[in-house]
Design a protein around this nucleic acid. Structure first.
Lengths: 114, 114
DNA sequence: ACCTCATATAAGTAATTGCTTATATAATAA
DNA sequence: TTATTATATAAGCAATTACTTATATGAGGT
């Protein structure tokens, strides 16, 4: 596996997006499992439009994938992004989002959206 | 060596600073060797006040150290920063700044400032 | 067709950003 | 002291940011 580099511009563009605590948390969660918008709203405690706007930025930068399932739209980390390795490195220095997602499950809050 | 985590806020603050191509390049250079302001101005081709302002932000966040030597002020990466490991991970996905610094040396441009 | 739910978009706004130009400070040399 | 050099700071400004509220879209159920 050959090591490939990002340009400074590419890296800076991705890092700028990660340099917001809400978006960084979104990445933390969608790197564990795909999440629907309402789950992320629940986890981060921000408004639905604010969440939608953050997700659009991440999607425009191709850092996340979008997938519709009926009413819901699920987002997941894009492992094909050239900066994926860098992003994973960043996320590795943060506590894993898995616990928070499991807590959502335990409270039967995954995909409630009511 | 126990693994320690950053908070999302701590990481986001550091990443926001890295999310600018000029500051990211500064970090790229000062991680290789300590650099004086005029060298960084030469390397990045931005104005001296703009450089000074970027350095102040990095210094305020303690991502870099400052050291005076006569006329010159040298900056170097702060290995004691809690986010140092994360920063190194980010820089590892970029081409090393060493070549550019060596080119400066070859052109006898290190600490000219004239 | 209509209603509801999940999500997206639009428009407006206050705060922040990264620059510019001009000036101040700090260190050394004459 | 005065001059020179390296760097920092101040003030101003256009662009960008992250939110808000209001409205639109898209999918499913009745």
């Amino acid at each position: 596996m050959e090591k490939t580099y990002l340009t400074v511009e590419e890296a800076a563009q991705a890092l700028k997006l990660l340099g917001d605590k809400n978006r960084l948390s979104i990445m933390r969660y969608v790197s564990v499992d795909e999440c629907c918008v309402c789950e992320l709203v629940e986890l981060l405690d921000i408004s639905q439009p604010a969440m939608s706007q953050h997700l659009r930025k991440l999607k425009d930068a191709k850092l996340v994938n979008e997938k519709r399932k009926g009413h819901w739209v699920f987002y997941s980390i894009n492992k094909e992004h050239p900066g994926y390795t860098m992003v994973q490195g960043v996320l590795a220095s943060l506590p894993n989002g898995k616990e928070d997602l499991e807590e959502l499950s335990n409270n039967n809050m995954r995909i409630i959206c009511d």
